[in-house]
Computed example of a mutant assay.
Amino acid sequence: MTTGDRLSLLVSGLGPIGKIPYASGTWGSAAATIAAPALFLPLPGFWRVLILIALFFIGSFTATRTETLLQKKDPSHVVIDELIGQWVTFLPFASLPTLELAAGFLLFRAFDILKPPPVRASENWLPAGYGVMIDDVLAGIYACICLAIFHWLRS
């Protein structure tokens, strides 16, 4: 295994999170939610969008490589897609109280697991790791809309 292969596994799995044997996607979303107030939400909107674009391409590349290495389509090891989906959920917010962070986490997990149209279909719109990433982006958009409504109702 090359250094590049090890790096792809490390990045696609968000370090050790992808190695968690049970519910690694939920753990990836939890890590993204915990990290968001320090690493994502304080940034200006322009930088958040750039980070999401970069994450999409980095995640697509590393997920593709991880699929090849593990010889499995969308392996549970890949959790970088949860990071991008969770941060898409939080995209329009400069800060969120703990209750709304938790609501965003639950909303994203629900949409990621239930995969309402066109989330499930989107997995096949793009090849390999791009398909792995795009469905989480769409689940994040659904969750973001619901979180924005929840936030507005609480204001």
Results as ranks from 00 to 15, higher is better:
128 A>W: 13
102 A>G: 10
99 L>C: 05
37 P>Y: 00
126 L>V: 06
150 F>G: 00
59 G>E: 11
53 I>R: 11
143 A>F: 03
155 S>R: 15
120 R>S: 07
107 L>Q: 04
55 L>V: 12
46 F>Y: 15
107 L>K: 01
140 G>I: 03
85 G>D: 10
25 G>E: 09
150 F>H: 07
101 L>P: 09
78 V>A: 10
67 E>F: 08
82 E>V: 02
139 A>M: 10
107 L>R: 00
56 F>Y: 13
117 P>G: 05
79 V>Y: 01
45 G>Y: 13
92 P>I: 08
89 T>S: 07
107 L>G: 05
66 T>G: 13
154 R>S: 12
78 V>N: 11
110 A>W: 15
50 L>V: 10
16 P>L: 12
55 L>I: 07
69 L>G: 10
65 R>P: 11
137 V>K: 05
29 S>A: 15
121 A>Q: 15
41 L>Y: 01
125 W>D: 02
3 T>W: 15
69 L>P: 05
55 L>N: 11
136 D>C: 04
64 T>R: 10
99 L>K: 07
27 W>Y: 13
55 L>F: 12
96 L>H: 00
142 Y>P: 02
138 L>M: 14
64 T>H: 08
11 V>W: 00
84 I>D: 03
98 T>S: 14
27 W>A: 14
125 W>T: 04
44 P>T: 07
143 A>R: 02
15 G>C: 03
29 S>F: 00
82 E>P: 06
79 V>S: 07
82 E>I: 00
137 V>E: 09
68 T>D: 14
102 A>W: 08
109 R>V: 10
127 P>S: 03
29 S>I: 04
150 F>I: 13
100 E>W: 09
108 F>G: 05
30 A>T: 13
42 P>T: 04
62 T>E: 10
133 M>E: 10
125 W>S: 01
108 F>H: 06
151 H>D: 14
40 F>V: 08
45 G>M: 14
